[in-house]
Design a protein around this nucleic acid. Structure first.
Lengths: 204, 204
DNA sequence: GTCTATAGCCAGATAGAC
DNA sequence: GTCTATCTGGCTATAGAC
C-alpha cells in the first residue's frame, strides 16, 4: 500500500501517462482503429517499451476502462454525500458528468462485440470489482427513484441501468457537437432531457 | 429500367444474396470485425468472385446500407398512408420496426468513426439520396408532432432525428435479450417507452 | 527499461488459368 | 465469372543490443 521507492513512483507516473493516452485514443477512434504504434507515438516512447508495462493491446484498453470506472466511482461517491438530493437527482448528475466526459473526448468507447477484449475484461478482477460496486450503488438509486415515482416503475431496474451506461457512449452528442451550432452545456442539457423525460418531454 | 436478360437476372439474384449476407454479418459483428472471407464463405462463393461484384469491403457495406435504407423508406411510405394516425404515431411505428429489425439481427451497425467507410458512403449517390428522402419525411413528422405537443418543442428537430437513428443501433436491446429473461415484444415496448417517454415515464 | 529492427500473422485485394 | 493461389501492407508482438 506504500508508494514504494522513487524509482517505482517514476514508473507509476509513466504508466499513468500511458493510460491517459489510451483513454483519449480509445474515445477518439475506438479499440479496433486504435493502434499500439499510435499510443507509443502519443506517449513519446518506443512500442517495445509499452509492452514492458502492459502485456497486450487488450491489457492497455482494460487499464483505461479501470481508470474510467475509478473516476466514475469517485463521482458516485460525491453524489452519495450530497445532502437534500433525491435518488433521481443523483442519477441525473452522474449521467451529466458522463455526458460531459463524452463531449470532452475522455470517455473510452468499447465495441460491444470484440471477443478478445471482452475476455480480457471479464478476467480482470479490478475491472469486475469496480463495475459491480458502481452498478450496485446506481441500482440502489434506481430502485429508490422508482419508489419515489421519479423513474418509471414499469421498467426493470436493469433496463434503466443498461440505458444509463449506453447513454454514456451514445453517438448523438458528438454528432450534434460536430454540427457546430450548439455549445457543450446546451447539448448536455438536451440529451439529459431526452434520456430522462423522453422525446415527448415532461408533461406533468 | 427493364430487368434485362435472364443472365442479368441471375446476377441480380446473386448480388441480392451477397448483400443479405453482408447485412446480417454487419449486424452481428460490425464493420471492423466482419471479414471478406466470412462473407464469401457465408454466400458460398470464392472471395475473388465477390470482388467481381463489389470493388471493396467498403462497397459491400455501402450496398447493405442502401438496402436497409430502401426497406426503411418502404416502412415510412406505409406509415404515411395510414389513416387516422398522428405524426407521433407514425414516428413511433417506424422506430418500433427498427427495433424489431435490430433484435432480429437484421440491422447493420456501422462504426461512427471509420473514415474509409464514411468516405465511401458520402460518395454514394444512392445512399445519400435515400438518406435525404427518409430524413425529410421523418423531419416533417417531427415538426408536426412538435406542433401537436407530442414531441418536446424545446428540442431541435435535428436532435430528435439523430436520436431516432441512434436508437436503431442501440446496444441496450441486445444486452437485454442476452439476459434471456424477456421476450422480443416486451423489450421493444420498454425501449420504445424509454425513447419517447424517458426513464421517468409518462406523467400526464 | 529503453531503444531499433524484425518476426509472424492476418485480412484486403489481385493474377491468371479455366 | 468462378476458381485457386498469391501478393501486399499493416498491425501485434518480440529479439537482442545497450
Amino acid at each position: 500500500m506504500s508508494k514504494g521507492s522513487f524509482r517505482q513512483q517514476m514508473l507509476q507516473v509513466r504508466e499513468d501517462a500511458i493510460v491517459a493516452s489510451v483513454n483519449r485514443l480509445l474515445a477518439e477512434k475506438g479499440f479496433d482503429m486504435m493502434t499500439v504504434d499510435e499510443v507509443a507515438a502519443d506517449v513519446g516512447i518506443a512500442k517495445a517499451s509499452l509492452y514492458k508495462h502492459f502485456a497486450s493491446k487488450e491489457a492497455l484498453a482494460a487499464a483505461a476502462m479501470v481508470r474510467v470506472l475509478q473516476r466514475t466511482q469517485e463521482v458516485v461517491r460525491l453524489q452519495s454525500q450530497r445532502a437534500g438530493a433525491s435518488a433521481a437527482d443523483r442519477l441525473r448528475e452522474v449521467a451529466r458528468w458522463a455526458l460531459q466526459e463524452l463531449l470532452a473526448g475522455e470517455m473510452p468507447t468499447l465495441p460491444a462485440q470484440n471477443s478478445t477484449l471482452r475476455a480480457e475484461l471479464m478476467a480482470d478482477k479490478d475491472y469486475l470489482e469496480l463495475l459491480m460496486q458502481v452498478s450496485e450503488q446506481l441500482g440502489e438509486w434506481i430502485v429508490q427513484a422508482q419508489a419515489d415515482g421519479q423513474i418509471d416503475r414499469a421498467l426493470p431496474p436493469e433496463l434503466v441501468l443498461y440505458t444509463l451506461y449506453a447513454r454514456a457512449c451514445d453517438p448523438v452528442p458528438a454528432v450534434l457537437k460536430a454540427g457546430g451550432q450548439y455549445g457543450d452545456a446546451q447539448i448536455v442539457d438536451w440529451v439529459l432531457a431526452t434520456c430522462f423525460d423522453g422525446l415527448a418531454g415532461r408533461r406533468a
